[in-house]
Simulated scan of single mutants.
Amino acid sequence: MRNIFEGKNIYPHDGKIKDHFKDFYNSVYVAYLPFFRIENHLSKSDNYKKFEKITLENAKKEIDVLNNIQVPIAEILSYSNEDYPTDFEIYNNGKIINWKTIINEIGLKDNTDINKALRTSIGALRKIFNKPELSEKLNTYTTKNNIWNPTEGNFDVFSKIGIYRIFKLFNKNEILFVDEFYENIKTINLNEFTEYEFLEKFDYNDYYIYSTDKEIMFTIEWDSFFFLIATDEIKMDIIISEKYFEGFLCDNKTTHNWDYLDGELEKLLEIEKRQNQKSENKKWSKFWN
């Protein structure tokens, strides 16, 4: 038996998701981080994301160490959008906008298009995988309709609410929070906190949240606009019926890169390889001529 907890290998970055969890869980759900709207809370800059693109000069003002190193020319993202609503505002006045709604509104193919659009928007993809046309289409729609985009790599307010309610539903009150690098572990008793107080117990890099008996677990990773719920099939049926999360059940083939068809990543990487080789040959041709 492979112990993903003791081996500090909880998130399934590689391989089939269900295979990764098979020694602990037989059912895994991919839950999307939701878009949301807050009535009368608009972005003055028409930027409905937590991040904003800033110049190198402004980045140096925020991060002193950049003044002492040579920084390549690249897009720099700052997660300090002053217009972004607070957790308190989201908790009290936010309304979830489902991925399905946005897919239908702007005519996307399915949830894979949204995931690729979101990943493109934060520069999480290599050039060959980028989908700027999808990202632009999504951004135009959300801006026009005052819809805030999800933020990658951490549990949002609505997901935390769902997590709290699921733990309470199954009477799982002793909860473990583990950070990204398995360096900080804290245990809390849900009976000591209100729903909103529970939200505030999350640190930005708490990536593994599970009951102390390990029967229910929630996990996310840094560039993702979704997280995973892992448990047994009986509990999972109940969790899905509660409708706190939008997403889909993993089958035996589902991987972390579920937004690509089998073999699609390999084909794109092969195209990238040929393009790079062609560019290299062209460079050397100019050198020798």
Rank of each mutant, 00 (worst) to 15 (best):
E266C: 00
Y244S: 01
L176I: 13
L265A: 07
E264N: 04
I163G: 01
G247P: 01
V178F: 04
Y204S: 15
T219R: 00
L169T: 11
E264M: 05
F181G: 07
I234T: 14
E266M: 04
F218R: 03
K243E: 15
T231E: 09
W258F: 14
I216C: 03
Q277K: 12
Y207A: 05
I185E: 14
E266L: 03
F248Q: 07
K172F: 08
D223C: 05
E270M: 11
V178R: 10
I240L: 00
K168E: 13
D237P: 00
L169V: 05
C250R: 04
E233P: 00
L228E: 06
Y182C: 05
Q277Y: 12
E200V: 04
E272D: 14
F170D: 07
L269K: 15
Y210P: 02
W222V: 10
S224C: 12
Q277R: 10
K278G: 06
N189I: 09
S224W: 11
F170K: 02
S241T: 02
K278Y: 12
I185L: 13
E264Y: 08
Q275K: 15
R165A: 02
L261D: 15
E233N: 10
D179P: 02
D223W: 07
I240F: 03
K278D: 12
K283T: 11
L176T: 08
E272A: 10
N184M: 08
E200P: 00
L249C: 05
Y260D: 09
I216F: 07
Y244R: 00
E233F: 11
I188E: 05
N276K: 15
I234L: 13
N276L: 12
I188S: 02
E246S: 06
E246Y: 06
F181W: 14
I234Y: 12
D223Q: 09
F225S: 03
L190R: 03
I220N: 02
K278A: 09
E200K: 14
R165T: 01
G247I: 05
E215D: 15
I240S: 00
